[in-house]
C-alpha cells in the first residue's frame, strides 16, 4: 500500500475558529480509542483514500497579528494549508488574502490550499458572500469550503479534500517535501500520536459542507530551485525571517 505523510498548517487570524475546527474534527475522528492528543495545536491523523494511506500532521498556528512575522516558520515544508476566515467578519477575510499572498511568495513547493469560511452557523451576520470567497479561492488555486465548527459541519470534507489533493500531488511527484512510502509500515516513522496502529480512520461518506469546485492545484513551481529534501532551508530554525509579509 502506498502511504503519504504530509504536513498541514492551519492559518488564519485570531478568533476565526482554527482551533475549534481542529478540535471538532479530532473529536469526530478520534471518538474511537485513538488516545488523547496533548493539545489541539498539533495532531496527526490518517485517512485511507483509494488505497492510499494519507497521514496528515496538522499544525495549528498562532494567528495574532504580532506573530505574523514568525508564521513562515510554521508553514515551511508544509504540503497543505488550510486558510480559515470568519464568514461573519470581513476583516478576517481580508487578512486571509494577505496570508495567501505570503504563502505563495514564501513557499516554493506546491501546496494544497484550502480556503475555509468558518462559522457558517452565524448565517445571519454573514459578511462575506460565497461567490466572493469562491472567486478568491479560485484565484489562488484553492478549494473553497464553508464549515461550521460549532455544528461540526463540513469538517470531514475539508480534510478529505486535502487528502485527495495530497494524493494527486504525490502522484504528480512534484513536491519534494511530501514524503511518500511504498509500504505503509514506514509511515509510523516519526509519528508520536498514532504510532501503534494499523487501524486508521476510514472516511465516512460526508455530505455536509459546501464543496466548491476546486481550481487547479497551485503548481507554479516551474524553474523552482531543486534542493535536497533535508536541506537546512527546510528546517525551521531561529533565524530571523527577512522575507516577511511587510515587503510587498
Amino acid at each position: 500500500m502506498k502511504a503519504i505523510e504530509a504536513k498541514v498548517v492551519i492559518l488564519g487570524s485570531e478568533g476565526v475558529g482554527k482551533t475549534s475546527i481542529v478540535t471538532r474534527y479530532l473529536k469526530n475522528v478520534t471518538s474511537s480509542d485513538q488516545g488523547p492528543t496533548i493539545s489541539a495545536s498539533f495532531f496527526s491523523c490518517k485517512l485511507y483514500l483509494d488505497g492510499v494511506k494519507v497521514k496528515l500532521q496538522v499544525w495549528d498556528t498562532a494567528g495574532q497579528e504580532r506573530f505574523r512575522a514568525v508564521a513562515p516558520m510554521y508553514y515551511r515544508n508544509a504540503n497543505a494549508a488550510i486558510l480559515v476566515f470568519d464568514l461573519s467578519q470581513h476583516k478576517t477575510y481580508r487578512d486571509l488574502k494577505m496570508w495567501a499572498q505570503e504563502l505563495q511568495r514564501n513557499v516554493q513547493d506546491p501546496m494544497i490550499l484550502t480556503v475555509v469560511g468558518n462559522k457558517l452557523d452565524l448565517h445571519a451576520t454573514r459578511t462575506v458572500s460565497r461567490e466572493e470567497a469562491f472567486l478568491f479561492a479560485s484565484s489562488i488555486g484553492a478549494n473553497y469550503m464553508e464549515t461550521s465548527a460549532l455544528n461540526e459541519q463540513g469538517l470531514n470534507q475539508v480534510f478529505l479534500r486535502i487528502a485527495e489533493g495530497l494524493v494527486r500531488l504525490a502522484n504528480e511527484n512534484k513536491s519534494q517535501t511530501l514524503r511518500r512510502y511504498d509500504s505503509s509500515n514506514s509511515i509510523s516513522a516519526y509519528s508520536n500520536v498514532f504510532a501503534d496502529d494499523d487501524q486508521a480512520f476510514h472516511l465516512p461518506s460526508v455530505h455536509l459542507g459546501i464543496p466548491v469546485e476546486e481550481g487547479d492545484v497551485h503548481s507554479s513551481d516551474v524553474g523552482r530551485l531543486e534542493t535536497p529534501s533535508w536541506s537546512i532551508d527546510h528546517i525551521a530554525h531561529g533565524s530571523v525571517e527577512t522575507t516577511g509579509w511587510c515587503c510587498y
Binding site: 485570531e14 493539545s39 495545536s41 499544525w59 495574532q64 506573530f67
Partner: peptide, 10 residues
C-alpha cells in the same frame, strides 16, 4: 480545554 496555538505560543 485543549490549548490552541494562539495560547501556546505566548
Amino acid at each position: 480545554g485543549p490549548a490552541s496555538a494562539d495560547e501556546f505560543l505566548p
